[in-house]
Write a protein that binds this DNA or RNA. Structure first.
Lengths: 226, 226
DNA sequence: TTTTTCACCGACCGATCGGTCAAGCCCGCT
DNA sequence: AGCGGGCTTGACCGATCGGTCGGTGAAAAA
């Protein structure tokens, strides 16, 4: 049930949490993810935990802190989580590992992931907002580095790096809107399928140029060139 | 400013709206998109429009109806909008047109799009919720039909159709989280870039198999086969 | 045994929520 | 001038919001 703070205990700053705190964080994450921050009241959280509302304020100073612990606290180590799962090897395989690791993170911390990525980005707390953006940028820049590696190694085309990163992250970030944990495929398997599609492309290599070359807009078949 | 109900007037059910109603819908869409449904109060909408809160209830029966008009009313014709912009031609080009048309819709009805796609999906109104899902499914099934066409024509590989559709829609649906209208690229241009990336793939065709074939997991290079 | 600590609770607070209502304002019509 | 009817308003409602407060009971510390 509780899925928070499972980083190796060495990197984690908060060593042990009381069961109650973990329960509150887990229930709050689920509620924030399904009903949103403003749609979730402190009463909702208390009722979900089977405790009084006052007890929430005994363990947390206010609602924002609960959300911060859910969103920031559990997203704390996304970058480290993924980085540790990207092994040495061909850059394109590192991108694949990046995608699969991100999907694993999504599967493990699903509610907290949804709660933090669907939150509205005007956090009144400036410092926290800035820290969140810093973390996100570090994560995104890590992917961009991998893409640049793959380009330098000649494994992928000379594409716009930020745009390529956005495409890859889009496929992962939108997953929570349609993923059903009761279905067969795991997020990791889905990420692997997406990697294959994005890396190798949808087009059939046996099929050359479409019969009638309509709409001669931008790049269609010239795959290597800039 | 007002960006709602611009369908040709023939297809639209509501012919002319008072300026006030259009203003309310536009401001409400912007607020719902930036602060969420629960984060937006009727006072917020009234203040944004420079009118009294009571006036909102003169034009709309309640908050839900305003949201419904923003989300459902303006998303009403996404399927028709896109369908009318997908011309005859090679199936892969129809997919490209689908993506660009969807991006155009996003650009035109940006706030309403964001408000409706970021809403939490437990609509208390059963009928409306069902209608929304029906619309979304019709839109998604349209894309799946195009993908199946492209497979049958041999233009794209024999991939899992629903999964391929999800990848394409992810690239478009996540755009609102990072798109900046002040930047140079239009959504349509971005969609075009994404189509190129997804259709032709990231991989460099000049580059064969990576030097060391690590991780012999699923499909890596066999592009035509099932 | 006495004292301190701490998880925990019921009652309550001011503010704000969505929503109502009776009454004014404004403007064209007769 | 008189009048009817939409547009518009401020005052107000009960409910719920996030948050506070004084206290209870049991275990740990003394």
């Amino acid at each position: 049930m509780v899925e928070l703070s499972t980083t190796k205990d060495g990197t984690a700053n908060q060593a042990e949490q009381s069961d109650r705190v973990l329960q509150i964080l887990a229930e709050a994450a689920r509620l924030f993810a399904t009903k949103g921050y403003d749609g979730t009241s402190m009463r909702d959280i208390a009722v979900a935990c089977g405790i009084s509302k006052s007890l929430l304020y005994h363990h947390f100073s206010n609602k924002d802190e609960i959300y911060a612990r859910v969103a920031v606290g559990s997203t704390l180590e996304l970058y480290l989580f993924v980085r540790d799962r990207v092994p040495d090897g061909p850059p394109s395989q590192k991108i694949r590992a990046f995608m699969i690791a991100t999907a694993e993170y999504f599967r493990r911390y699903r509610w907290a992931w949804i709660a933090s990525t669907t939150a509205f980005w005007n956090d009144p707390d400036r410092h926290r907002q800035k820290e969140r953006l810093t973390r996100r940028d570090r994560f995104e820049n890590f992917l961009r580095g991998l893409i640049q590696e793959a380009i330098d190694a000649g494994e992928i085309r000379k594409l716009d790096v930020p745009m390529t990163g956005r495409l890859i992250l889009s496929s992962l970030n939108w997953m929570h809107r349609w993923y059903n944990p009761n279905k067969t495929a795991t997020p990791e398997q889905i990420a692997d399928i997406f990697f294959d599609m994005v890396f190798n492309g949808l087009c059939n290599p046996d099929f050359g140029v479409p019969p009638t070359g309509e709409q001669p807009k931008p790049a269609r078949r010239k795959r290597a060139g800039k």
